[in-house]
Design a protein around this nucleic acid. Structure first.
Lengths: 212, 212
DNA sequence: GTCTATATGCCGATAGAC
DNA sequence: GTCTATCGGCATATAGAC
C-alpha cells in the first residue's frame, strides 16, 4: 500500500519504487525461466541484491510479486499491436508491425517467455484481459485488415489467422531462442541475424498476402 | 530397470507397461500445464488411477518420470519433419508438412506444450538432442530446400527461417490455444476450424515462397 | 505389488530485535 | 526498513507390513 500512484516523485517513494523495480526485474528473469513454482524467493532476492525477508517486506507474498510482474509485461506485449495503424498502406503497416514485434522479442525476451508460460497454463491470471482488452483490440485490427481485403488492397486472407501467424513467427525467436540458437548458432542479439530475420519474416508473410 | 526393451510382449511385462503408460499419460497432462515443479505426484497418481506410493514403485522419482515423458514426446514432435520428403514437388512437400504439424497440434497439444515448456527453460534435458539429432535433421531438410531454390523451383528464401516459420505457425495453435480460443472462440478440435486453419496457414506460407 | 504410516528436507512466511 | 531466527506446512520419498 506504499505507493498506489506509480509516478508520484516524492523523494522517498522514488527509492521504494527503485527497489521494487529491481525486485520485479529479477523476478521476471527467474519466473520466465522456471515458472512461479520453480523459482525460489531466495533466488530472486539474491539476483535483486536484497535479502529474502526484505523482499517480503515490499511484496507480501510470492503470488503478489508474480501478479505485479505479469501486469507489467502485458503492456510490453500489447504495445506493438496498439501501434498498428490504418493510416499506412497495408503492406507497410504489416511490415512495421512485424519489425516492432521482433524488436520486442530481441529486447524483452523474458517478458515474451513469461507471457508464453502463462498462456501454456491456460492464462489463469490473464484470462480477464484476454477476453476483454485483447479480444476487442484484435477485433479492431481485424476489421482494418478485412477492410483492406474488401477494398482490394490485400489478397483474401482471414485476419485472425494472419495475426496469429505474425504473433507466432515473431515470438518464436524469443520463446524458442534455445532451439533457434541450437540450429543456427545465432541469436537476435546478433545485429546481422536480427536484420536477416526481419527481412525473411517480412518477406514471407507479405509475399503471402500481397495482391496479384 | 523392469523393462529395458520396450516392446517385449511377455504376459506380465505387458501389464506393467500398461500401467507405466497410464502414469506417463497422466504425467504429460499435468507436466504440460503446470511444469515439473507445479505438479504434485499425488495429482498425477490420482489422474492415472493409482496411489502415490504405487506410482513411486514404477518410477523411482519425480524427475525420472519427467525424463521418461520427455523422451516419449520428442518422437511425436520430430515425426513430421522426418516425413518431409524430397520426392514431392516443393509446394506439395511443404504443404503436407504444414498439415502434419497442425495434426500434431490438434492430436497431441499436451506434447507440444511440454516441449515448449522445456524450450522456455533452455532445454536442460533436450540440449543433447537439439544440437545432435535435430540440428543434423534440420541441416538435411534445409539442404533440400536450398536445392529447390538453386534449381529455380522456389523463391529465394532462407531455409532455416522458413522452417522456423512453419514450426511457429503450427505450434502456435497448440501452445497458445488459450489465446486462440479467447480471440476466435474456436479450437482445432472443431473440424471446420481445423480445415480453415490448415488452408490459411498453407496458403500464407506457400504464396510467400512460390516462384513467380 | 500395493498398502499405511512416517521420515525428511525445503521453502514461504512471520516474530521480534534493532 | 532491515536484520536473525524460527515456525509451520507441504510434498517427495522411504520403511515395512501384508
Amino acid at each position: 500500500m506504499t505507493d498506489q500512484a506509480p509516478k508520484k516523485p516524492g523523494k522517498r517513494t522514488q527509492a521504494v519504487s527503485a527497489k521494487k523495480n529491481a525486485i520485479m526485474a529479477a523476478a521476471l528473469t527467474t519466473f520466465s525461466q522456471f515458472g512461479i513454482h520453480g523459482t525460489r524467493l531466495e533466488q530472486v532476492a539474491e539476483l535483486a541484491g536484497v535479502s529474502k525477508t526484505n523482499l517480503l517486506y515490499y511484496f507480501p507474498s510470492k503470488e503478489a510479486l508474480y501478479v505485479a510482474v505479469m501486469r507489467n509485461i502485458l503492456d510490453i506485449w500489447l504495445a506493438p499491436l496498439r501501434a498498428f495503424r490504418q493510416e499506412f498502406t497495408p503492406l507497410v503497416a504489416i511490415g512495421e508491425y512485424i519489425r516492432l514485434k521482433l524488436e520486442v522479442s530481441r529486447d524483452h525476451p523474458e517478458a515474451s517467455r513469461l507471457f508464453c508460460l502463462e498462456m501454456l497454463q491456460g492464462a489463469p491470471l490473464l484470462m480477464a484481459e484476454l477476453t476483454g482488452d485483447l479480444k476487442s483490440l484484435v477485433a479492431d485490427k481485424s476489421a482494418i485488415i478485412s477492410g483492406w481485403v474488401a477494398e482490394g488492397k490485400l489478397a483474401p486472407v482471414d485476419p485472425n489467422h494472419l495475426i496469429f501467424m505474425i504473433w507466432a513467427a515473431t515470438q518464436h525467436y524469443a520463446d524458442f531462442s534455445t532451439q533457434v540458437e541450437a540450429v543456427t548458432g545465432k541469436t537476435l542479439q546478433d545485429e546481422a541475424f536480427f536484420q536477416q530475420t526481419v527481412d525473411n519474416v517480412q518477406r514471407m508473410i507479405i509475399e503471402g498476402i500481397r495482391l496479384r
